[in-house]
Nucleic acid binder design. Structure first.
Length: 556
DNA sequence: AGGTTAACTTAGGATTCTAGCT
DNA sequence: AGCTAGAATCCTAAGTTAACCT
């Protein structure tokens, strides 16, 4: 027992997850910290003249300088917030009086060169930190997820976040509370002369370390990796709950359909909101503070986010999680159309569509329909059932690659339902260009082949190739075969190009990682003799170990 | 009843790795 | 062998949920 630690006893925890016991023994080595700042001494220019900076001022200037090629750099809010924090470090009487007269090019160039040099000498990928990588939970060695404490940086919030560009200060051991087994040795603080904030022994929670985020008023946690049995267990429970929804969904749908026309507005709003969450896989939509980006989910939809298009279509247009835009026009049952019209009536654009509703009321209602049901369960359900049904319907006998295409098609459908997007890859334009070029080349080649076919039919020798090479003298049938091959090749490339264009903003990974019950994929692989390695990367295989022994006839 | 806090899941972008090409 | 596109992994922001507080 190490109850004689020098650390203050923490007062009883407030809400702590579900309060259930998460482990019996827990041993780990704490966390690591980024290296302290090494000043480079490169001077920036102010109104064209070099300026010396203190190491602290230089560190923050460097964070800004290296972001020159990012979208953030020219955002007024980003510059304003950065200048606020950096200006404070410079002090009121500093030579530098405004940001726009600063030229960070010397530091930017220095950084480019550093990166180049690092690439050249790809040494030191040493396994330092190896000991931090593992925890022992109930006697089992498990991987730790994120034992590296976040380095200081300029805050990169998504979308129009009011705090972008603010300095996220360095985290020290005195910010970190560790959670560890009572009998485990307390990890030595990795920074000499410093000490942890606190040590806890709370086995009702899963985190190993916690600190307060300096930018937003929220906690950051260190916990086990997704491959741990603890996380695996939770993951399985999540999918089991979503499967349970299958038994209730018909009655839930009947209930909300009936309530589309309820007299009570609140009841009607709950019905329509539940419908949207079910049909469109919308997120619940919690209230957000003024110091966050303005995004919405179902319960926080504004009047301006939903347009009624006669006779019975709704157009949704809003910024959701991560400020990703959701645009979708759907046809709805007339009672839904009518209800939405009623909710919009007499309000201004920025008013709440569901003024009688919030996530706690909604979830409270869902719990009456099915034990432990919450809004997010519908997303999991929708995604997984879609994959299960599509794979059963679409998979044909054939080669593995064709089956994988079917899977990706289903995966893509899910990603679209869930609105999982990515930004267009930088090289997308070039890639499309290259494909188009190849297709053009093939078409030219095709012309030549056709000419030669005609000539062969007339008994003439083939033309000299465009590349100046002599072409063999072959039969018309052989030319026809070549032409058919070439056309197939062209069609394939055209297909590639079309799907590349279609997929350019669709992100498949998020649903695979978080929404698709891995047992659907594993059982499908077993039924169709597709190696599971083809579907899951190494880390996903580790995350989904709990699903690997599923029966081939598993249905979600 | 509504606000706050805590804990855990989900998310896209950045960075790093790797396989399949010249 | 060296390059590079795309995949994999890393990073950390931004959601959801429920219990507690007032």
């Amino acid at each position: 027992m190490t109850k004689d630690s020098n650390y203050a006893k923490t007062s009883k925890a407030l809400p702590s997850g579900d309060g259930k016991k998460k482990w019996t023994t827990l041993v780990h080595n704490g966390v690591t910290f980024p290296p302290s700042y090494k000043p480079h001494g490169i001077k920036i220019l102010y109104k064209g003249k070099p300026v010396s900076l203190s190491p602290e001022q230089e560190e923050v200037a460097t964070m800004f300088a290296v972001m020159r090629e990012t979208e953030y750099y020219n955002k007024p809010k980003f510059r304003e917030n950065f200048w606020n924090d950096w200006g404070r470090l410079l002090g009121k009487n500093h030579v530098i009086q405004n940001l726009d007269d600063c030229d960070f090019t010397p530091i930017y160039d220095w950084n480019l060169k550093q990166k180049e040099e690092k690439k050249g000498s790809k040494e030191q990928k040493s396994k330092q930190g190896e000991k931090y990588m593992w925890a022992i939970v109930d006697g089992v060695k498990e991987k730790v997820g994120n034992f590296k404490i976040e380095p200081p940086a300029l805050f990169r919030g998504r979308g129009e976040h009011p705090k972008i560009g603010k300095l996220k200060r360095r985290i020290h051991p005195c910010d970190i509370t560790l959670n560890i087994g009572e009998d485990a040795p307390i990890p030595e603080c990795p920074i000499p002369g410093e000490r942890w904030k606190d040590i806890k022994h709370d086995n009702t929670v899963t985190w190993l370390a916690i600190w307060n985020d300096p930018i937003n008023k929220r906690y950051k946690y260190v916990s086990l990796s997704a491959s741990s049995s603890q996380k695996g267990q939770r993951d399985k429970e999540k999918y089991e709950k979503a499967r349970k929804l299958k038994d209730y969904i018909d009655s839930i749908r009947a209930t909300y359909t009936k309530n589309f026309t309820a007299k009570d507005v609140s009841k009607r709003q709950i019905a329509v909101a539940t419908y949207l969450i079910d049909k469109l896989a919308l997120r619940a939509g919690n209230e957000k503070d003024d110091d966050e980006a303005e995004t919405v989910g179902c319960c926080t939809l504004k009047v301006e986010n939903v347009e009624c298009i006669p006779p019975n279509k709704l157009k949704f247009d809003f910024l959701g999680k991560d400020s990703i835009r959701y645009v979708n026009t759907i046809e709805v049952e007339p009672p839904v159309y009518k209800a939405i019209g009623q909710f919009r009536a007499g309000k201004s654009n920025s008013d709440d569509l569901f003024d009688e509703l919030d996530t706690s009321k909604l979830n409270a209602h869902l719990k009456e329909l099915m034990p432990d049901l919450t809004a997010k369960v519908f997303r999991t359900f929708n995604a997984s059932i879609t994959l299960d049904v599509m794979l059963r319907q679409e998979t044909r006998d054939g080669d593995v690659d064709q089956k994988v295409v079917v899977y990706e098609q289903a995966n893509k459908e899910v990603a679209i339902i869930c609105n999982h997007q990515r930004s267009v890859p930088k090289s997308h334009g070039a890639q499309i260009g290259r494909l188009a070029g190849k297709i053009e080349q093939l078409r030219e080649g095709l012309k030549e082949l056709k000419t030669n076919l005609e000539r062969a039919r007339k008994g003439k020798a083939p033309l000299e190739g465009a590349d100046g090479k002599k072409t063999r003298n072959i039969t018309p049938e052989a030319w026809e075969k070549k032409i058919a091959q070439q056309m197939k090749k062209t069609e394939k490339l055209e297909g590639d190009m079309k799907s590349k264009e279609e997929f350019k903003t669709v992100s498949l990974g998020t649903s695979k990682m978080n929404y698709l019950d891995p047992r659907i994929t594993v059982s499908w692989c077993k039924r169709h003799e597709v190696p599971i390695q083809k579907m899951f990367s190494k880390t996903l295989l580790e995350k989904f170990t709990w699903a690997m022994d599923v029966e081939p006839d598993f249905r979600f």
